[in-house]
Computed example of a mutant assay.
Amino acid sequence: MTVRDDIHGQIVAGLKGAKFPINTPEELLSAFPAGADTTCRSGDLAVTAGEAGKLLTPADFPFKDAKQVADTIVERAGL
């Protein structure tokens, strides 16, 4: 599994219980189990939801599902 696939899967899993659509960055962060401190790890890479959220813009919202969130974050992060 690649780092990209690993992080993508962890984001999707972290948002498993989230209610969509998610309309704001605040709603997105609160949807993660530990909020902004939720951490995805793959090898030596570790990224928190708070750090990943900085890659998003207001134009990215609303998100319709967890896959869309994960797709956007891994793409912007260059993974």
Rank of each mutant, 00 (worst) to 15 (best):
M1H: 10
M1V: 07
T2R: 05
T2E: 02
V3G: 14
R4A: 15
D6Q: 14
I7C: 01
I7R: 01
H8C: 06
H8P: 12
H8V: 08
H8N: 01
V12W: 08
A13N: 05
A13P: 00
A13V: 02
L15K: 14
L15A: 11
G17P: 04
A18H: 10
A18E: 15
K19H: 13
F20Q: 01
P21L: 02
P21N: 13
I22D: 11
I22L: 12
N23I: 03
N23S: 05
T24H: 08
P25H: 11
P25W: 06
P25A: 08
E26Y: 11
L28V: 08
L29S: 12
S30A: 14
S30F: 07
A31W: 08
A31G: 04
F32W: 11
P33H: 11
P33K: 00
A34E: 05
A34I: 09
G35P: 08
G35M: 09
T38P: 05
T39I: 06
T39V: 03
G43Y: 08
D44P: 07
L45W: 00
L45G: 02
L45C: 00
T48M: 03
G50H: 10
G50Y: 12
G50I: 06
E51I: 07
E51P: 00
E51W: 04
A52L: 14
G53T: 01
G53L: 02
K54E: 04
K54D: 14
K54F: 00
L55W: 01
T57F: 14
P58I: 15
P58Q: 12
D60W: 13
D60A: 08
P62Y: 11
D65V: 13
A66V: 12
A66Y: 12
K67V: 09
K67Q: 13
Q68P: 13
Q68F: 01
Q68V: 08
A70S: 12
A70R: 09
A70P: 03
A70W: 12
A70N: 06
D71E: 13
T72D: 11
T72A: 10
V74K: 12
E75T: 12
R76I: 14
A77L: 02
A77H: 01
G78H: 11
